[in-house]
Write a protein that binds this DNA or RNA. Structure first.
Lengths: 346, 346
DNA sequence: CTGAAAGCGCTAACAT
DNA sequence: ATGTTAGCGCTTTCAG
């Protein structure tokens, strides 16, 4: 280690003067340009230069300044994950955990970093101005509601990839979705084939495509078998909302023998209510969920559910965005398949 | 809206040329400096200038470029939250949700943004170089383990506030902790006063101060009452870990009549095991948890637990860091009190 | 293969 | 109160 580097190391917290490219250049006996080439992996550098620059970088502990770099190059190597929900919702639903893991997994093989915005706790609309200030190269938006108009102002500035069909789908939109209609259809059919005829559903919010599409699948299945809708209630994609919705269903006197619940989290709430009412699952009422998130196996009886590949969806969204940023031309729409997971609740 | 602004609005996604301070200055008929003053809220601007600049900004939809701004000012107005855990752990424990909410709550009243790093899924050590590249003005570190040495390299570059006593505490460290020793002591005493004498404990990881301190409190209480340690097992602060630990306790033949579990999440696992073994809670074995997180009320019986103010801890950490960044001199150490919450498990 | 030079968009003295 | 002037640290032509 050079004396320079040693002196630097000895300084106190937060005081360290950051090493600049200029100092590295001086130490290596080359110009700024050459250092820059090395840092950015250009091939047009002689082995000797590469060697001395690399050594200087290590000795001085050089890390390029991000602000300077993105000002000059007009790229930030950062992408935003925008979740228009509040913190409670975000942390309460394992779906988001899987999405974030998937995105991280893809990003860790790139030189991009992820900036997370839980945007509903955001009074001043910091998220929008952050993105519009050029702080990220692109954005991923999940859990998009009809009312989330700020997304449009983001999409006019950087490329956006949506998780799930956007609320107002346009030709040029990029998104990665699960085949919700099909999944809900199959789930409902499974209930029917198990002999149930009085099938209710607890839906997600109707201002979200996932809520709408899963309801559609349920309806298609009932129609195909010529069955009536016993009850349809919105459970808001939360456990408590699911419980409330189930209470409403019961209050109507509908007496379902099965319920298709559009998320596992809501199904947990449903289960609680049913059990409290003395109804046995699946004997009296069968339940099928949607997600196959960890909650599916954390309840008793364990949930039969329609698995959606959320981790893969996260990975795929990241891949599409990275392709876009690299100037490639990914497909606009990717639809992932769901899969029935049979456990104990049907 | 000016024709300029209209033209801009009509451009396609990701194509929009960003408005610069120069264009705003031209439109407002003033110099860059004046626009900068207005943007930064300087008082030294005439009412007329303020008015015309403000209008120009709105018309052109100007948002200052973050990279340029931080390059010039040497501040980023961003802080990092660094969590040396993996994604599963991060999303699985409601403690983090509360911490993040608290931080966000404080930050939303400032002009800082939060960058979250779930640092254990980070092979290339991007977190460290991100911070060292000058991307943030300061950092908050929670869930610090003995092995997390990369934190030192971060703390040498920006001010750091720790959530919980740092693993190797130094005079100059700033941190916000809960009185874990006291909380654990009181919890254990509550068990003793309820008539239990064979008290086991499920601990957090011993490489984390919270794990160590809560064990200490348990031991202090037993010592004060001259009671023996029936069993001490590490539950790793997870539900599954807690379950495994409880199985180990039972396997020793210890036959506890109570167990102090160092987190609610672990207590859930403990409860599952006890119930599966046909042991009644609290009749056969009493359980007291730690946290008072949402899981405490989501299990049956609901957990008696030692509440720790995690949201407040998050807020406080943010406040301390903001004070530091503003050049103020906050206290180095803040200790928050815990509170016994009596429910059904003791 | 390498260096010189011109910015990227903004802030912050310094003048006026 | 406002404008002028230097940079902030880096990338990127452009020459050579």
């Amino acid at each position: 280690m050079s004396t320079d580097a040693m002196r630097r190391t000895q300084r106190g917290a937060g005081t360290a003067h950051a090493v600049t490219i200029e100092e590295v250049a001086a130490a290596a006996g080359v110009s700024r340009s050459t250092v820059s080439r090395v840092v950015n992996g250009s091939t047009a550098v002689s082995p000797e230069a590469l060697e001395s620059v690399t050594r200087a970088i290590n000795e001085l502990n050089y890390v390029p300044n991000r602000a300077a770099r993105s000002l000059a190059s007009q790229k930030t190597h950062a992408i935003a994950l925008i979740v228009p929900e509040d913190t409670t919702r975000f942390f309460g639903d394992p779906f988001f955990a899987a999405i974030v893991s998937g995105i991280n997994s893809r990003l860790s093989r790139s030189d991009y970093v992820l900036n997370l915005f839980i945007a509903s706790d955001d009074p001043g609309d910091k998220t929008t101005s952050y993105v519009r200030s050029g702080a990220v190269d692109g954005a991923i938006v999940v859990s998009h509601h009809t009312s989330d108009t700020f997304i449009d102002r983001i999409a006019s500035v950087v490329p956006v990839v949506y998780g799930g069909r956007p609320v107002r789908e346009r030709e040029r939109d990029y998104y990665v979705d699960v085949d919700n209609v099909r999944g809900a259809y199959d789930a409902t059919v499974y209930l029917i084939e198990s002999g149930r005829r009085r099938i209710a559903t607890i839906t997600g919010p109707r201002d979200m495509p996932a809520g709408v599409d899963r309801l559609q699948g349920y309806r298609d299945a009932l129609a195909a078998w010529d069955l009536d809708e016993i009850a349809v209630e919105d459970g808001n994609f939360t456990a408590d909302g699911g419980a409330d919705a189930m209470r409403r269903v019961l209050a109507t006197g509908a007496q379902p023998d099965a319920v298709f619940v559009a998320s596992d989290l809501m199904a947990r709430g449903v289960l609680t209510v049913l059990t409290a009412e003395g109804l046995r699952v699946p004997d009296d009422v069968a339940i099928i969920g949607f997600d196959d998130s960890p909650v599916a196996t954390s309840v008793t009886p364990q949930l039969t559910t329609m698995r959606q590949p959320s981790f893969a969806q996260g990975e795929r969204m990241a891949t599409v965005l990275l392709d876009l940023l690299a100037g490639r031309h990914p497909r606009h729409v990717t639809i992932l398949e769901t899969e029935l997971v049979i456990r104990e609740s049907v």
